Amino acid sequence: MRTIKHLHRAVSAPIADLVTYRALPTQSVEHLDPFLFLNHHGPQVYPANNRGLPFGPHPHRGFETVTFILEGDIMHQDTGGHQSIIGPGGIQWMTAGRGLIHAEISSPEFKKTGGPLEILQLWVNLPAKDKMVEPRYIGLQEPEIPSVVLQEGRVAIKAISGNWAGAAGAVQPLADIQLATINFLEGGTLELNITAERTIFFYVVRGRLRVNGQEVEARQLVEFNYDGDYLHVEGLSDAVLLLGHAKPFQEPIVAYGPFVMNTEKEIQEAYQDYQAGKFGRWEE
């Protein structure tokens, strides 16, 4: 059974009027290779005639963003020519690669009518060999994501990438990154085998769970040791879990603002390329 090294509590980090908790990085944990960053926006209720999400045009290079829309919506646009509006239960997987500019804002309808909003954004590193690949964007609505229902509905898995209980994930990433969101009803249990050399990313979004004997609350990130292959998860209440695992890249990580590379020189080059217009020109 995989042992637990530490529980890390997400810290309050509001952005304008957006309720935000940052689970990674915090003072207690820098990253869980290759998982770099997690912001948990909401839950909150926006009034009618609101300003929506505050993430206007900004650049990225060298990693991937995976965004989970639990409530509300996101309107995506980028300099690769991709556009979409993804609603509740959907996901966005953007490979920034060599660089692009994107915006993540609320749809005109959400700004007009308001409503509940809860969104997770996870940053996943790219290995050095893939950091300069052509950018890619995948936006999927909830019905497009394979799901597996276990224990007569007490456990429901949305397979984002990798393989979960026999279901292939909706996205085939460049690296072997396996991601799922899992809904538990109280009393639901799940047993998983994840080989000991892989990093586990285990973040409780809502509710309370017990994993390998340890109780975990909402907005807690579990850091595991690399010493076992077995996870036993039990719903102590109705709960939502973001679960991922991957073999660590074990490469240098140099992160500065919106860029994640392997050396300081590459970070400088990213800023120079962005300023030179090599990430594309933003068009409203």
Score class of each variant (00 low, 15 high):
residue 55 F to N: 08
residue 29 V to E: 14
residue 59 P to L: 08
residue 87 G to D: 03
residue 89 G to E: 01
residue 135 P to N: 06
residue 131 K to H: 07
residue 74 I to S: 02
residue 21 Y to P: 00
residue 27 Q to L: 13
residue 69 I to N: 01
residue 97 G to L: 05
residue 60 H to A: 09
residue 22 R to K: 15
residue 23 A to N: 00
residue 51 R to Q: 13
residue 92 Q to M: 03
residue 19 V to K: 15
residue 101 I to E: 04
residue 48 A to E: 09
residue 50 N to R: 03
residue 24 L to G: 02
residue 47 P to T: 08
residue 93 W to Q: 10
residue 92 Q to E: 06
residue 42 G to P: 08
residue 79 T to Q: 04
residue 143 P to M: 11
residue 13 A to E: 11
residue 129 K to D: 13
residue 76 H to S: 09
residue 66 V to A: 12
residue 66 V to E: 00
residue 119 I to A: 01
residue 81 G to Y: 10
residue 35 F to H: 04
residue 104 E to L: 02
residue 38 L to V: 07
residue 125 N to S: 14
residue 63 F to R: 04
residue 82 H to M: 02
residue 17 D to K: 10
residue 101 I to D: 06
residue 107 S to K: 09
residue 15 I to M: 14
residue 36 L to T: 04
residue 54 P to G: 07
residue 74 I to F: 01
residue 60 H to K: 08
residue 136 R to I: 07
residue 109 E to P: 00
residue 67 T to V: 03
residue 143 P to D: 01
residue 56 G to M: 05
residue 128 A to I: 12
residue 53 L to T: 05
residue 61 R to I: 06
residue 36 L to A: 07
residue 129 K to C: 12
residue 38 L to Q: 01
residue 57 P to C: 01
residue 135 P to H: 02
residue 62 G to T: 11
residue 15 I to T: 12
residue 98 R to W: 07
residue 97 G to K: 03
residue 144 E to S: 13
residue 129 K to S: 15
residue 132 M to S: 13
residue 116 P to K: 14
residue 19 V to W: 01
residue 106 S to M: 09
residue 109 E to W: 11
residue 20 T to A: 12
residue 137 Y to N: 08
residue 139 G to N: 04
residue 35 F to A: 05
residue 120 L to G: 00
residue 16 A to M: 11
residue 43 P to H: 11
residue 55 F to Y: 13
residue 18 L to S: 00
residue 73 D to C: 09
residue 123 W to R: 05
residue 31 H to Q: 14
residue 131 K to S: 03
residue 52 G to I: 10
residue 82 H to S: 14
residue 118 E to G: 04
residue 121 Q to A: 08
residue 12 S to G: 12
residue 112 K to I: 00
residue 130 D to L: 15
residue 35 F to T: 03
residue 79 T to R: 04
residue 17 D to G: 02
residue 139 G to K: 04
residue 83 Q to K: 14
residue 28 S to L: 11
residue 74 I to H: 01
residue 86 I to E: 00
residue 54 P to M: 06
residue 76 H to Y: 12
residue 90 G to V: 10
residue 16 A to L: 09
residue 64 E to L: 05
residue 74 I to T: 01
residue 96 A to S: 15
residue 57 P to M: 03
residue 15 I to F: 13
residue 25 P to F: 13
residue 55 F to I: 02
residue 34 P to Y: 11
residue 55 F to C: 02
residue 26 T to K: 07
residue 52 G to Y: 04
residue 22 R to N: 08
residue 127 P to D: 15
